[in-house]
């Protein structure tokens, strides 16, 4: 969702927030933080073929570390104003979006291929306890 602070969107956002406040968990059905992040990935990676199934897995893992309260706040904010605009308004939202994108990029073949626009970028889940996770590290011997 491209940010467009139109009256319509603000009304939609306000409505979402009101529903959230009124009906607890049922609002989750109305707002989709997964889609917001996936759209953000696509806008951040223009011309890149994203393997959506594995990207969805990445987003699922990323958001799985959040509390329900955090997800609720992010969903309403992202749906209402967009991921990028929330990032300009709040450090927390900016860093959250960047961390999600970073998780996707550094656990996929994005930095391994010569031209990331020439190949489909596939995220590969990494189990906890995996060694040598920084793809940029210089580990040359002394």
């Amino acid at each position: 969702m491209k940010f467009n602070p139109s009256r319509r969107n603000i009304l939609i956002g306000g409505g979402t927030a009101a529903i959230a406040a009124a009906s607890g968990a049922s609002w989750v059905l109305l707002a989709d933080e997964h889609q917001a992040l996936l759209d953000y990935f696509k806008r951040s990676l223009p011309g890149v073929r994203i393997d959506e199934a594995s990207a969805a897995e990445c987003i699922h893992e990323f958001l799985g570390r959040w509390s329900w309260k955090q997800r609720r706040a992010a969903t309403v904010a992202w749906q209402t104003f967009g991921v990028e605009t929330m990032g300009t308004m709040s450090d927390k939202f900016e860093l959250a979006a960047r961390r999600a994108l970073t998780m996707y990029l550094t656990n996929s073949n994005f930095f391994e291929v010569a031209d990331p626009r020439a190949k489909t970028i596939v995220y590969v889940s990494r189990p906890s306890g995996t060694a040598c996770t920084n793809p940029f590290a210089n580990l040359d011997p002394p």
Partner: peptide, 9 residues
Amino acid sequence: HYFRDGLRA
């Protein structure tokens, strides 16, 4: 490491 702030977008 980039875990704290992430890479630039």
